[in-house]
Every structure is written in structure tokens, then in C-alpha cells.
Design a protein around this nucleic acid. Sequence first.
DNA 1: ACTAATTATATCGCGTGCGATTTATTCGCC
DNA 2: GGCGAATAAATCGCACGCGATATAATTAGT
Lengths: 145, 145
Amino acid sequence: MLDRALTLDELLCFALYSANNAMGRLYRPLLAQHGLTYPQYLVLVALWQRDGQKVSDLGADLNLESNTLTPLLKRMETAELLQRRRNPKDERSVVVTLTDKGRALESEAAEISRCILAASGDEVADLIELRDRVQELADRLQRAK
Amino acid sequence: MLDRALTLDELLCFALYSANNAMGRLYRPLLAQHGLTYPQYLVLVALWQRDGQKVSDLGADLNLESNTLTPLLKRMETAELLQRRRNPKDERSVVVTLTDKGRALESEAAEISRCILAASGDEVADLIELRDRVQELADRLQRAK
DNA sequence: ACTAATTATATCGCGTGCGATTTATTCGCC
DNA sequence: GGCGAATAAATCGCACGCGATATAATTAGT
């Protein structure tokens, strides 16, 4: 019943940590061509799917809070990828909206995904199953909090 | 053959990103009790398995480089978890060795793993299979670089 | 044995993640 | 309608990851 310290290779958390870092290293040069970072790209993906979200909505999508999102979104606003405006109906919240430039990048995204897919090798069906299993784990860990 | 931008839910990279963040949030309070951060814990795991490694060896274990490891190891040295000494045989390299304090923490590690395991829920066999699949992916991404 | 190339760490700057706290706005209750 | 509680962002500080570069030690080639 687990009475010793596990090795790196035995740790699920380390596999996730390694895979996430490796994924980031793969995305970095592809995204840098468009002046994006990895989390900025994820924000764009969320906004392509549904534009005009509040900061807290984006936080729910990405499992992040304003302490991470606010500075990130400000940098993206400076890069003219999106706009941040106080909601007139409720001045507490801030609505995030894509600019033309931010929307235009969507057409480049498929090419990036193709590059990642190629590097991930393997059968697409296997990757999809892996994705779903990892996402289930993420959800379980989230709830365990 | 993938002619559109994927949604967040479709992205394997986002599943990994979420799971890794969630894992970190779960570990944080457990590790904080011992004054550790998540990557510091991974360094300890590597050293418990094999003490007296060079910085570059640790880098190979963890897939990190000196730009990340050097400051991290310095903080751990300040916390008296380990020692950093130039190798007398080759003054370019630095050998990292656990202190008694760093070694002593190994006995606490099993308890931490038990907490994480509990939060990960599910069958242990499933988690092991997931870990291996994620690790395979990490290796594939690493090689694709 | 000199020197260029290589190797091993270290340094620097930037963009996250996140705990802790603050500020601004709205809601709830009397 | 006034006021304390709740809600939404923002701010601050710290520890990563990593690209780019610098520094120091060793090796290789002649």
C-alpha cells in the first residue's frame, strides 16, 4: 500500500510535467512566429470558440484566476489581439473581445495543430483517447481541491 | 485532414496543461508543509534515487537546463536541502549532494504520494497505464524537437 | 604548448501561475 | 435608503521555464 518514496519514472505527476513542458517547447517556435505565447494561444482558442467572455468566464474555461489572467490579457491587449472593457451592466466585470487581428489568427491555428499532431506521432485515435483520459484526470484533480 | 482551429476541449495540449496545473495545485499545500515547491520536490525525488549527480545529469533526468536548474538548486542549497560543489576532477561541472535534511524528507514522500493517489481516484492500474502513455508522449515530443 | 572549439554552468530578461491582499462595484437585508 | 457582505478584477511578490548570452574550464588540433 505504498510505503516508500516513488521514483521519477513512477510518478504520474512527473509524466504530466514532462509532457507539458515538452509540448510547450514544441509550440513555442510555432507560436512565436505569430507573436504569441502558449497561454496566450489558449486564450485565443477560448475566444475563437466564444467571443466576448468575462475574465471570470475565461478563467472557468482555462482554470485560471484573475491574478494570472489580468496581466496576460493586458499584454494581449497591448499586442492588439483583443480589447478589455468594463461591462456597462455591471462595472465589476470586464468583457474581453477579439480584435480583427486576434480573429484573423484563427486561420493559422489549423497549421499549428497539424505540426503538433505530426510530432505527437502515433495514431490519431490513440491521441484522442489519451486526451480524454488526461482531461478526465484533470477534472478529477480539480474537484479534489 | 484538420482544416479548422480546434476547440480547447479538443486540444491534447490543453488537457496536459490543465492536468499539470491541477496537479501542481494539489501538491502545493502538501509540499509547502515541508517548505518545498513542486519542481524542488522533483529534484529531491531524482536525488533520492541517485545522489551526487551533476547539474547536467539532473537536467537529463528532469528535462531541464542550467538556466532553470541553477537558480532552483541555489534556493534549495539556501534551504539546506542539498550542497553544490565543483567537481575537483573537472571544475566545469557541479555535483549536487543531499544534506541530512534533504535525505530525511524521503520518509515523508510516501504520505504525499498517498494523498495525490487518493485525489486521482480511479483504479491504480488505470493510473499506471495513463502514466506510461503520457510518458511515451513526452518522450516522443522530446525527440520531435 | 598555443589556440580555437567544445563543454558545463551561470546570468539575464520575460511571461506565466498562484497565494495573499486590495480596490471597486453590486447585492442583501433591514 | 443605508450599510455590511459578497463578488469581480487587479495588484504584489515569488518561483519557475526557457531563449539568449556570458563565463570559465577542458579538450583537440596543429
